[in-house]
Write a protein that binds this DNA or RNA. Structure first.
Length: 288
DNA sequence: AATGAGCGG
């Protein structure tokens, strides 16, 4: 360890230097046979007093960058239930985490800053591939474009029930499955596919209108009431400020049938409502 | 003028 190395590794010294101008003199004494390094520092305090600081450091013989005890432990033969198994983690039962090393450094050197916690998480998520359980695509299962068609297939495969149990459960909502897991009626084997039948719209695919110039005190229910005359309204959403929840003056109205949405668009676009004139367009599909 | 929230893994 060199003299200037010692100076920069002590954060306390760095702090002092900003206050006390006089440069401390440091003498390092190394004895080859001993495992101790001695430094003697002479410095002048702000009030003029001279002090001598003697520090002793133990030389550490490091085989690697890990704690010696940890390294030793890794050479132990396995014991207990793992007795006789080959060395190293068994990947079938053990997930090997990322080795995060805590590094302390003097000052706030942002140029060599470690990647932030957030970045590390993102990296980890990236390496932990998202695979759709239905079609094996790289999206979440709920985002699967084939959800409405493969969805039933999946729940049938997932089921550990015998056909007898499955049939018995279909009739009674209260019946528990053999796994004890509740399956809502809409997802039980043989249930009608979600949306308007097989291949029909899946939740986000309903015909949707964007309504703008909506007065600030218009509520979801008001729009539902306004649009219901054109057909079954699937959803009403009013754009709001995240914090204040105040309306941002636009809304989305989804119908179950495109023909109804079309009628609504024609009739409501340009219509006076609550002292404003509503504008209605087809919405662009939500995406991110 | 203006295009949505939040789940998961």
């Amino acid at each position: 360890m060199s003299t200037d190395k010692l100076q920069s590794t002590s954060w306390a010294d760095d702090v002092d230097e900003t206050i006390a101008a006089p440069e401390p003199q440091i003498k390092t004494i190394t004895t080859p046979d001993s495992d101790v390094i001695t430094t003697i520092e002479v410095r002048t305090l702000p009030d003029g007093k001279r002090v001598q600081v003697t520090r002793k450091f133990k030389k550490v013989l490091k085989k690697s960058n890990v704690n010696q005890a940890v390294a030793d432990r890794k050479t132990w033969p396995k014991f207990g239930l793992e007795k006789g198994k080959p060395a190293g983690p068994d990947r079938a039962t053990t997930t090997v985490g990322e080795n995060v090393v805590l590094k302390l450094s003097a000052g706030n050197d942002s140029a060599v800053e470690e990647p932030s916690e957030e970045q590390l998480m993102k990296e980890r998520l990236k390496s932990k591939k998202i695979v759709c359980r239905l079609c094996k695509g790289d999206h979440f299962t709920t985002k699967c474009p084939y959800k409405s068609t493969l969805g039933d297939l999946d729940s049938a495969q997932d089921s550990t029930q015998t056909p007898d149990e499955s049939n018995a459960n279909q009739g009674t909502a209260a019946a528990a499955t053999s796994t004890g897991k509740y399956i809502p009626p809409s997802q039980r084997a043989g249930a009608r596919a979600s949306g308007a039948g097989p291949g029909g719209p899946s939740r986000d695919e309903y015909p949707t209108l964007r309504v703008t110039n909506v007065s600030e005190d218009t509520h979801e229910d008001d729009l539902r009431e306004l649009f219901r005359r054109f057909g079954r309204v699937q959803r009403v959403f009013i754009g709001r400020d995240r914090e204040t929840r105040a309306s941002k003056g636009f809304a989305f109205v989804s119908f179950e049938l495109r023909s109804d949405a079309e009628k609504a668009l024609e009739k409501v676009n340009g219509m006076g409502y609550d002292n404003l004139i509503l504008s209605v367009q087809w919405s662009q599909p939500r995406d991110k």
